[in-house]
Design a protein around this nucleic acid. Sequence first.
DNA 1: GTCTATAAATCGATAGAC
DNA 2: GTCTATCGATTTATAGAC
Lengths: 193, 193
Amino acid sequence: MESAPATRSLGSAGHTPAQTRVIEAALALFAEHGISGTSLQMIADAIGVTKAAVYHQYNTKDAIVVAVAEVVLTGLESAVTAAEAERRRTRSREVLVDGMIELAVEQRHVAGILQQDPVMLRFLREHEPFRRVIERVNRVLMGGACDPRATVLAAAISGAIAGAVTHPLVAELDDASLYLQLRRHVGRLLPRQ
Amino acid sequence: MESAPATRSLGSAGHTPAQTRVIEAALALFAEHGISGTSLQMIADAIGVTKAAVYHQYNTKDAIVVAVAEVVLTGLESAVTAAEAERRRTRSREVLVDGMIELAVEQRHVAGILQQDPVMLRFLREHEPFRRVIERVNRVLMGGACDPRATVLAAAISGAIAGAVTHPLVAELDDASLYLQLRRHVGRLLPRQ
DNA sequence: GTCTATAAATCGATAGAC
DNA sequence: GTCTATCGATTTATAGAC
């Protein structure tokens, strides 16, 4: 029997096979060329269909970007939900950081686009469901404080994780080593509990 | 009297006023919309001239990207040159990290595009003078080692700095606080000397 | 150094057949 | 669900006058 599905504020479920093909092709191309640098023609070519077929699934390019964002953010939402279930704030942050590292390593080839692409950042700011997830993540990372020290710490943690897994230096490192070393280094960033 | 100009492998000197206007406008637009998301028309509009006038200064868009990269990388090259002058490896890394933080805070609104934009990353890989600077930075950050621990550490330091200064959380923080807090947090990342 | 004008290709997006 | 065909706007880039 399945475990009860976590309450989702992001509707990433219910994709037809054709939609899934679009999302996966777009994800790979966005990561390599950026969102602005990816045309619908490139997505269509990658799938092996025409532009019109892509438009039948998502009738604007923005809709594709939102669908891609939902897929990537779903994991982050689960991680922050698990973290928020912890009672102690320091423990909560540890759980979230560990989840973020695991996700970032899993999705290392696409992690960059979510956190750095200007088009994606615009959606993260303006699309309400996305902003809520980001705000929950930041709140946990800041550990209840809101002073400059906590703010920069949260930014540095996010940046270190996203920046490290997408850094050219670690391109040839295996997932397990990257995960272990990243846990170790980012762990040093966290204040002693 | 002026101090002797540091040996430059990046030819960022010798810009005409018109070229400087192009570079500065491009820098701001690249940072906001990404490189692919910035057209020559947008650059021309920002300066207040026509596209043809822009093309008279740089006859391809790629040439503008290279010129922008040179300007931004010049600071990094000075920082790594200063760091390499130190005798002890741990001290060398400290000097470089401090220089990188200073540069990143100064250029916080454009720092992201250099380290994360897919088009810029392609130039950093393929343009030989750029790659040499990046390699020198990485060598100092890794402190003489080349194991997974040192590799991920170097990636995490770069990522933490670039990621932190461009993070939306710190957008409203003043430069001085950002610099101080970032030094503190990234300092914890460095192994005890 | 800047302009007008234009070329050739590609962009996102739509209509309608199958 | 995919196709052909097309639209209008925009893209990079060039030619030639001032």
